[in-house]
Write a protein that binds this DNA or RNA. Sequence first.
DNA 1: GCCTCGAACTTTAGCTTCTAAGTGTTCAGG
DNA 2: CCTGAACACTTAGAAGCTAAAGTTCGAGGC
Lengths: 182, 182
Amino acid sequence: MGDTSGLGEPTLEEQIAAYQREFQDLDPQVEKIVNALARLNRRMNVAYGRQTAELGITSADWEVLKALVLSGAPYRMGPSDLAKRLGLTPAAMTHRIDRMVAEGLVTRDRDETNRVRVIVELTPAGREKWQEAMRMATVFEGDLLQDLDPDERATLGEVLTRLLRRVEDAQPDAGGRLTDLD
Amino acid sequence: MGDTSGLGEPTLEEQIAAYQREFQDLDPQVEKIVNALARLNRRMNVAYGRQTAELGITSADWEVLKALVLSGAPYRMGPSDLAKRLGLTPAAMTHRIDRMVAEGLVTRDRDETNRVRVIVELTPAGREKWQEAMRMATVFEGDLLQDLDPDERATLGEVLTRLLRRVEDAQPDAGGRLTDLD
DNA sequence: GCCTCGAACTTTAGCTTCTAAGTGTTCAGG
DNA sequence: CCTGAACACTTAGAAGCTAAAGTTCGAGGC
């Protein structure tokens, strides 16, 4: 029947052929780009997931570490800010922070100037975990792009940025949900 | 503090600047590409999620519909095949099929030639749902790529395919999990 | 022809993670 | 001093998953 590759998953070419077979007026060029984007991203997420597992943290942990590190020194944020940034409810954030405090990745303290607020702060151990994850990620990313020469990288970066600008302008509300990992 | 854009989310440029500030020996070119890929994909998933919601189906439903349609006429698969294809356990598949049968998207019958097996088959309604979703998706995809001229599209498709080939060769096991939506 | 083994799906139990709603605490203003 | 708003936490419940046991059926030995 064609793609008897064991149901594991068809190749990109097989999949596009199937789309064309089942749906009229499909631009194969567009479909190739969109499907390649989706598949690339899935593979990236698999790779990142393996790395974080190897470091003994969850992907959820990693997202929080990332938000804190990128906020800059002194690496502090309130739970609601984190929740907004990651696109989940404050209640869910409370649980995540519980876990991460137990793992020693962050501390949770009351803000002494406004005792309603709570400050989540990265620990040195948490910062080191993030750095390790980044070291692994950059190795993977370098491997991924190793076939591209500098010109191709520049062009690819420019084109993707243009696409992103268009979609972010058209869709100002991020929405959260649906995996982040950027 | 720089990105006082309300915590909603930093721009790509701000985010890369933050990465460079916090991590040494980072190639901004690589990081730009990788982060743009991740953000693009998130936006695509948000868009697809809205479309499926508008059609009254879940993303999980859509994945199953897609697998069935792409398998070709007569749009039949066994639960274990579907489970393998979508990367989840047979038990989880049973529940998904329950839902979808109740929604009239698929039927579930015993295979009369081998009564151990079960055949999940797309209903006309299910097929029509998929077609509607595809119509919406192609509109979105056309909008997304509208700024690219034909040469750029061809180049982008080729480059992404090259990246995909590399990562799929290096990582033969898909692993499943972590959102598909391709 | 019977019996046992294995395959395919379902069922059950339990876990994880989320949301929604309600509670307690703190600060600001009248 | 009292009220209202803001913030985080707690509790209850829903959704979705996995693992493991259970059921049904077909295949092959004897």
